[in-house]
Structure formats: structure tokens, C-alpha cells
Amino acid sequence: MAKILEVSNLEKTYSSGSKTLQVLYDINFKVEKGERFSIVGPSGSGKTTLLGLCAGLDRPDSGSISLCGQKLDNLNEDARALLRNRNIGFVFQDFQLLPTLTALENVAVPLELQSVKNASKTGMELLEKVGLADRFHHYPSQLSGGEQQRVALARAFSNKPAVLFADEPTGNLDAETGEKVEQLLFDLNNDLGTTLIIVTHDIELAEKTGHVLKLKGGRIISNETAEKW
């Protein structure tokens, strides 16, 4: 199968004053197109840093990343932003909806910025898929946490991304709501054939994906199919 993400010899260090902190050490892995892939580990293990590097939001100190057939090391910031806009979706733990926009506007505005025709119609279709068509005119403050994350899912899938990066997508939700959001995430993933890369500390969520990469102290300690893990 085609590789949609390839990470080779990746290392990342942060500096604070005279001190340096190495967050990632010699990270190597590959993700197949259409795969469901989890990155797990305790707090401080480097999960979110790794996700940001893989998505081209930050640059490593050494090593290389190939995403959707393009080497990120060769791209300037504008080219990286274009790659993300065309191919990447994001879901975050804290939803990151714009508070002054309605649910529909939060989904449709990214499409309008890309000059997609019938952006509002597409937005409504996506809100219907996540069960929020009747709440399209509500603002984030008028929605529950689970509803906000469902809007965030609709927005993330609006550009039919090749890869969706989800950072602790159920971290701020209770167990029952989290399970509903997980199912929606997987259903939308199936419908659109998106490659799904989830950063989570939730072992049960990770085991629902096909592959689990486990980090500890910035190093890979296992990289297995979920059945073997």
C-alpha cells in the first residue's frame, strides 16, 4: 500500500534560556494510506510535539518527514500552509471553534476561504451527518462540549482531507459523549477514506485503530498493529 506519512530519524529539542530539553529521539515510522493509526503515551512523552511535526506545524532539529508525497523539509512556510489547507484536517481537545461564528459558519468559513462553491450547503450536509442540523444557528457558547466537538469534526472533514490529525479528541468529554464522538470520527473516516492519526492517552480508543505506536520519554517503545499490542 502507498505510504501517506513517512518519518525518518526525527529529533526535536527545545531551548529555554541556557537549558535545552530533548523531546523526541530518533523517531521512525510509516503510515499507510487509509490507515487508522494511534500515537499513545503518558503526559510529556512527546505525543503532541510529534503530531505537530508530522503535520508541518513545526520543524524538527534533524530527520525528515514526507506527508502526502511531499518532503516537508523542502517546503517553505507558505508551501506547508498550502499543503495543510488542501490535504489536512485537524481536531483538537479544546475544539478551537471561533466563538463569534455560528456552528454553520465555523464549518463553512474554511470552505469559503478556499473559494469552494456552495460552502453553506456543504456545511449543512456535514452538520446533518454529525446530528447537528437543527443547531446550525447556535454559537459555541450555546453548545455542550460534545456538540462543539461534533462541529469541530464536521469542520475537520469539510475539505475531504487526505489525512486527519486528532489530538486527544475525546480528552475533554465524559465517557458516554466521548464514545459518541469516537463513533462519529470513525464513521466520517469510513465515508471519506481519510487516513486517521490520533494522539491519545486513552488505551481503549487506541485499540479501536489498526496500529498503535507507543512513546515514552520521547522514544518509541513499541510500534505494533492494535491486535498485537
Rank of each mutant, 00 (worst) to 15 (best):
K121R: 12
M1K: 09
H201T: 01
K12W: 00
G44S: 03
T195N: 12
S15A: 13
I203P: 03
G171H: 03
I203H: 10
L50Q: 05
H211Y: 04
G178R: 04
T20I: 05
K208R: 15
K33M: 12
N74C: 13
I88D: 01
N223D: 15
A108T: 05
S115M: 03
K117T: 10
S38A: 15
S62P: 07
V107D: 13
L205P: 06
L21D: 11
S45N: 12
A206Y: 08
Q96T: 08
G145H: 03
L184H: 13
Q114A: 02
A119M: 07
D78Q: 10
Q70V: 07
T209Q: 06
G44N: 00
V107K: 14
L173C: 14
K117W: 03
A108H: 06
N74T: 14
S18T: 12
V7R: 00
F186C: 03
N159D: 12
K30N: 15
L215T: 02
S144V: 09
Y14G: 09
H211E: 02
D58P: 13
F92S: 10
T225L: 08
S43R: 07
A166I: 03
D167T: 03
A152C: 14
H137I: 02
Y139W: 01
E6C: 03
V116T: 15
F29D: 08
L53P: 14
V212T: 06
A119C: 06
N87M: 04
L111R: 08
Q93H: 09
Q183I: 06
L205I: 05
L24R: 11
T200Y: 00
G41D: 13
R84S: 02
P140Q: 07
L143I: 09
G63M: 06
D58N: 13
K19S: 11
R135K: 15
N76E: 10
A162H: 02
L67N: 00
K3P: 04
D73Q: 11
E207Q: 13
F90R: 15
L185C: 04
V91K: 11
E176Q: 08
S16Q: 15
R59E: 13
V107A: 14
V151G: 06
T48D: 15
L72D: 00
L185K: 02
G193R: 09
L192G: 04
N87I: 02
M124D: 14
I65G: 04
P169Q: 11
T49H: 09
D187R: 07
A226S: 06
I221K: 10
S144N: 03
Q93F: 14
L127A: 14
L126F: 02
N223C: 01
E128Y: 08
F165S: 10
E125W: 08
G210W: 01
E105D: 10
N85D: 11
L132P: 01
N106H: 00
